[in-house]
Structure formats: C-alpha cells, structure tokens
Write a protein that binds this DNA or RNA. Sequence first.
DNA 1: TGAGGTGAAATTGCATGCATTTTTCAATAT
DNA 2: ATATTGAAAAATGCATGCAATTTCACCTCA
Lengths: 246, 246
Amino acid sequence: MYATTTMQNHLLKQVRRRELIRAGTTVEQMVRAIADMIVTGQMLPGEKLDEVSLAARFDVSRTPVREALRELGAMGLVDREPNRSAVVTNVTETYLHSMFEAMAELEAICARLSAERMTVDERRTLELEHKASMRLVHTGAEEEYAAYNTEFHTRLYRGAHNDHVFEMVAQTRARLAPFRRAQFRLPGRLAKSYEEHDRIVTAIMRADGAGAAQAAYCHVETVSDASAVFAAAGEPAASTLPPRGP
Amino acid sequence: MYATTTMQNHLLKQVRRRELIRAGTTVEQMVRAIADMIVTGQMLPGEKLDEVSLAARFDVSRTPVREALRELGAMGLVDREPNRSAVVTNVTETYLHSMFEAMAELEAICARLSAERMTVDERRTLELEHKASMRLVHTGAEEEYAAYNTEFHTRLYRGAHNDHVFEMVAQTRARLAPFRRAQFRLPGRLAKSYEEHDRIVTAIMRADGAGAAQAAYCHVETVSDASAVFAAAGEPAASTLPPRGP
DNA sequence: TGAGGTGAAATTGCATGCATTTTTCAATAT
DNA sequence: ATATTGAAAAATGCATGCAATTTCACCTCA
C-alpha cells in the first residue's frame, strides 16, 4: 500500500528528518496536523479517519498513525471504538451544552484569577490590545477580529497564573472549536463582543475579581448562543446557558 | 525477547481473548491496569515504564504497550519524551499547587451546581450516606472512610449534572492521586473531614449554591494542606491554597 | 420493492524486525 | 578520586506482515 522499497523509505526518512528538526517526532507532528484540521474545520464532526489513508497522506506506516489517533482520542478530538475507524468527535446536544457551560465556568475562573493576579505588564498589554481591537470592529474585519479574540482569551487564561487551569481551558476550547465556527459572521457580533470584552477588561483593571468572573461568564453565554452550533452532523442545536453568573 | 512461536502466540491469544470479553481491547486493558498502578501508588512518580518490561509483563508485543503509554501520556499520568522511557508523572511544586487550586475550583463548581440541580433522590442518598459515615469516624476506620470519601465526592461530581465538568474533575483527581496518599493517616483528620462534608451537605440540602461552593473550596484547601504532598521524588512540598472561596 | 444472507475487499489489532538513539560501564586521562 | 571517552548493550521509533473483524456490494427470496 505504501509502495516504496526499503531503499526509498530510507531516503524519504532522511528528507523528512530534516523538516522535522523543529517539529518533534512523526507522531507528534501528526497529532498537531490532525488536531489542527479538526479545530479549523477542515475535517468535520462525524468524518472518518482511516489509518491507511492517513498513512499514505503523511507518507508513514500505520504504526505512528495509530499512535496519533490514540492520542487524539485521549484528547477528546476523535472517537475510537474497537475494530472501527476513528471518527472526528461528534457530541450530543446535551454534551455540547455541558462543554459550553464548563467553558463559561472556566473562563469565569480565569477572569477572576486574572483580576487578582495579573502583573502590571499583563494588565497593560491586555488593555492596550483591547483598545486597539476597536479598529477591527469599525472596519468589520471578521477574520482579524477572530484572531485577536483568540489572543484576548489566551491572555486571560495565562493571566490566571495556574497551569492546570490553563490546560483544562485550552483542551475544552479545542474540543469546542468545531462547534463554534463562524461566530463572528452574525451581524453586530463584533461590536457586541467588543463591549463584553470591555466589561471584562474594566473589571480586571479594577482588580474586581467577582465582576470579571461575572462578565466573562456572560460573554461565553452569548458566544454559546451566537455560535453556529450543530449537534449531529448539521443538525442545529439550540443551546442556552442558565441565566446566572458564577 | 517475547520468545513464543507463532503457534504458541495464537494459543495465548485465544486464552487472553476469553478473559477480555468484558475488558475491551488489549490496549484499553493495559491503560486501565497501568493507570490503576499509578493512582493507587504501586508505581511512584519518577518511576520508569520501559516498553520491553511492560510487554513481557502483560505478555504482548511492544506495539500495544506503546499505544497504552501514549494514551497515559495524553491523560497526564506519564511523561514521555522522544527516545526516552515513559516515566510516571512527577510534577513540580508549582504545578502541583496549580492542580490543587484547580481541584478546589472544580469541587466548588460541582458543589454549587449540585446544590442547584440534584434530584430529590440524589439529595436523599447524599445525606443518608453522609450520616452513615459518622460510624466510620467513630470507629476510626481509615481505609473504609477513604473509600466512602471517594464515593462522597463522586456523588458531588455527578450531582452537578454536567458531563464535561465531570470528566475534568475526574481527570484532575486521577492526576492528583499519587500526591495525596495517606491523607487520612493524620490524627483527627477523619473527624475534620466529616465536619467539612457536613457543611457541604447542609448547604446542598438548603439549595444554597454559594454556601456549598464555599464549603467545598475550603474542604479541598484543608485536604491540600493535610495531604502528604511530595513534589520531586520524596521532596516535601508545602502547599497552601490562597485563603479565599470562589 | 425490500429484507436478509453471503463472500470478497477493506480495515483494524497486534507481532516482529531493523535502524537509530540513549544508556551503561569500563578504560583512560586529569 | 573524579571526569572523559568510547564501544557494547539496551531501549525507542517506525515499517511490514498476518490474522481477525468490519464493511459493502451483490444476490436471493419473500
């Protein structure tokens, strides 16, 4: 299937090795590549990931492919069942709801801790970049704003100064990614997002932990509502968080 | 190394298959077995897990062993680096602290949600079992109380009715397990634990979410302090959570 | 037309083997 | 005595091959 002679394989391996000097082992690279395809929507929930195709695609044998899939399974990005192909995780509406709710709780924690712990530098950067993002809102630069938005939230997660919380929130965010695509396509979403960020930033600058938590919780709530959310392969899933703060 | 003829292998496989009917694939079984050894302290942080030994021990080839190790790595129970043996995760004091803090936050969330969402049955069971546990405190049955304690907390996690939060808290608990052994060996710890449980249960029965969260946060805080906590291979790590509720 | 059965092809699960990297340990130098 | 080096031993990374399971097209029969 991967029809190359031993000789050729060795040559290929040498070539690949050089590319990978700054990219870790084959498996790590594959995990990143596949995770990225899932998170960015190049692979959709429900899509099959068969080992032979992936092996051909990455020009490796099935062994590293299987290890990558196992890791992706542990990360929650793909579902695996014995003797079945791995599948991009497609969660039930109930589970999706639980992830959004958990995300709101986690963001609230990060916002609260950020309000209490961010360094002067972190606060300054947060506020500066936040204000700069207004330009993107005015020009309606959806793509750019989406990128900025990711940075903004990552700053919150880092600002909490808790590595384990950071891991959890990053993992939850990755698993949620396939289901929150195109959230900035909705009209007026950019401006609303900016305003919500503003409430969070203001509270953090005041070291108002409770206020920051409340604002962050509500922010995720509206993202949860605004997101183009699909439960099972294109089936729309209404999903509203309970109307409380933490 | 695994010196068996093909013939013998097939026979062994048949035998194993029967044992595994209710245990999933070889890899899944190994993941459970190894995770259990780590969580229960049969393997200590820093201990090496070499593939050949594990293969011999479970009487399989290295291929499934490698997959199991990769999954355990993704779960955070072992550390893996390229071309190195896997090692039972041994975290820094700082990271350990961040896990305990995260645990406190997660328990607080579960307690709050439990107070708001537990069914009548769940509340009744929680209270009944809690009261029954007083007997164990009086008789000083440490082992039994530890088992009950696990059940108690699992009930809280379930009572939150949020599957993703449940997953996160379960994973955090598993990763913390190697570092919190023997927490009930300290004199008076059983009685104190019971009292703290009592505050949580009382708040939940009153549907007092904030009170339950506060009580749960403090409970983890004292567990964090009381735990025999070791950062790097036997090095004691003082670890106190900040003196706040969520 | 559709439900159910059948066998070949496709796919997964695991064993084995080879190349490469790390580890070990003794010999030598400082 | 400690540090250094270098080659043998051991361990990991990945390719390949075979058995077992699943999938799917096709056929049969109601």
